[in-house]
Design a protein around this nucleic acid. Structure first.
Lengths: 187, 187, 187, 187
DNA sequence: TAATAACCGAGACGGTACGTCGCGTCTTAGG
DNA sequence: CCTAAGACGCGACGTACCGTCTCGGTTATTA
């Protein structure tokens, strides 16, 4: 019955957030600054997002909308290589800044941390697990292998490079990672 | 000519920081709050530490002073198992909160991030690399294996559990991790 | 052609205003709060009243509808005593809170101030002047006396007690005031 | 032991308040605006004054510092005429705006109202009462006259003109008022 | 008797100010 | 010259209201 949410305002907020992230980084991002840049009332931001991290998360999802499902390539190696390459590429450049900021905020804000863990992170872990299970069903993975450990090794190495920034998220890295995981699958 | 730094004030600051971390978490930690709780002038805190993260880092080093060097246990497996177990145990409980907060701050504060990366994180990586190099010298590690990838897999999985909190930092986890690394060393 | 004003909404607004005034005082009265309490859209309030003070004023007029004209009691003293008593009684208790709030708002809001001055205040002054003129016509008031000064003395003392709240608006006060005015009338 | 209050900041606040009052009136006066104009932190304003009305009150006292005691002129008439003239003159022009705003705020803010009543208003009433008592001691005032009523008549008429703004605060008004009070003193 | 225009409730919108908190700097007195 | 204390300018926090707007739903004439 009431006036509906303004899509224009929503877009303005997400756009302003992208600009501010690029210009000043996650640490300098404030609700006040987002509202100011977006030409939007602070209340409007608070009405729909509880924190800067949530705005960034939604913006990330918006940008990542292009990321699609994992088609079955017919072999574990092909499936896994594609998944790892896509995951690594998805956290490169600007996305790395966004992701590291979001992960940081999750450590500092209990509520947001819970949302990130049970939402985005769990979904990504689940997706990789499905790839590995498909391989096990095809007998390409030794049944004794603990798939969850493989998942942790893969996302761990990936996030560690994002957060510690000691080496690039190259395609070479993705393929080395894939090879290591495949080796572990086979015994 | 100058009066020396007051050890009493230093201890008060570190103690207050520990209390506040336990009570309210890293996100609620402030320079103002530390000074208040420690019964110390704000200026005194700023004089010796540029940010809360640095205080926490020093406090962490203080607590971790017990952690000693890596003795040579005679075999790669023994060396590695000991290293991984110690590393995992060192990020359990309160230390996990401290570590995750420090890592978060590193993402938000450029300067501190650089210090953490080239300091603590690089030192830990270097320590693990030495263990692996010792193994290679003993011909326990295939010379074609990229040791840096192993280092990333190990610290990645460890930090990922700390940050994503989806599973405990158990001894079982440490040993699974060790086994996976050993398998990769041999081929 | 058009739908007429809803009497139900009007009563809801005035009723809610009375409640809020009693509960929290004039200073806490807001258009938003009135609409909320009345279960009425904000627009409806704004459509019919430009400010909280106008709502209160209408509510006051509503409550004071019982106050009638000044009958001729036959003598200045009787007329004046009745007028002063009625005026004093009319600003006691809840009405004092309403009146003081309305007067306050008139100081802060130029437009409303003008309306109050040329409306309510001028009408009351005029009524008292008529009483005094009737007395002068009956030769009960010295023709040299400045009637406007008497009016100012009467309403001044009355409002001053309302606003400064240093003494009660008792019947005794009304009669003392009347006696003073009568004394000044006679020379 | 701590840094002392900054006289410079205090003056900046009072000065900014004077400017804003002149430019935009009491109704548009805000703590935020005062701080901005004064080039001072909001906290600094809040630290020393709880509301805009208190700032204005202090500013008023500052400006009115020139107002001195009531010397004894030797006769009731001389004393009273001087007092009334000074009181009337003191609420003319800019001071009228200040005074009416302060009085308004006292109606809307319980706490400030109490402070104004027991402070400034009571002191002024007391001063006039002393003038009248001196007259009674000299047998220039009929001992049966209720001095408090005279005080109410005087300040009532004065404030009423300030608030209702229906007639000017002229010297003629002051003298008419004085004459009326003198007439009431003598019987 | 259908349409139609102004009414109604709800509440989102761009704003401004609120009063508080923490930032990092400064200015004191005191050891 | 370091210390505890705390005032300073600054700017973000999250909330309350402002007055305007845009909805869907509801009357009561007027065509």
């Amino acid at each position: 019955m009431a006036r509906p949410r303004s899509e224009k305002a929503r877009q303005a907020v997400l756009g302003a957030t992208k600009e501010l992230l690029d210009e000043q980084g996650f640490g300098a991002l404030t609700m006040e600054g987002i509202a100011r840049r977006a030409g939007v009332g602070k209340q409007t931001v608070y009405r729909w997002w509880p924190s800067t991290a949530e705005v960034v998360l939604e913006m990330g999802n918006e940008l990542a909308a292009a990321v699609v499902a994992d088609p079955d390539h017919g072999s574990l190696e092909a499936d896994l290589r594609a998944f790892v390459r896509r995951s690594v590429a998805g956290l490169r450049g600007r996305n790395a800044r966004i992701a590291s900021g979001v992960m940081a905020e999750a450590q500092l804000d209990e509520t947001f941390g819970e949302r990130l863990r049970t939402g985005f992170l769990a979904r990504r872990r689940e997706a990789l697990r499905r790839v590995l299970e498909r391989g096990r069903d095809r007998a390409e993975v030794d049944p004794d292998v603990d798939l969850d450990l493989l998942v942790d090794l893969m996302f761990g190495a990936l996030w560690y490079r994002v957060l510690a920034q000691h080496a690039p998220l190259s395609r070479r890295f993705a393929d080395q990672l894939t090879d290591a995981l495949l080796a572990l699958c086979r015994r």
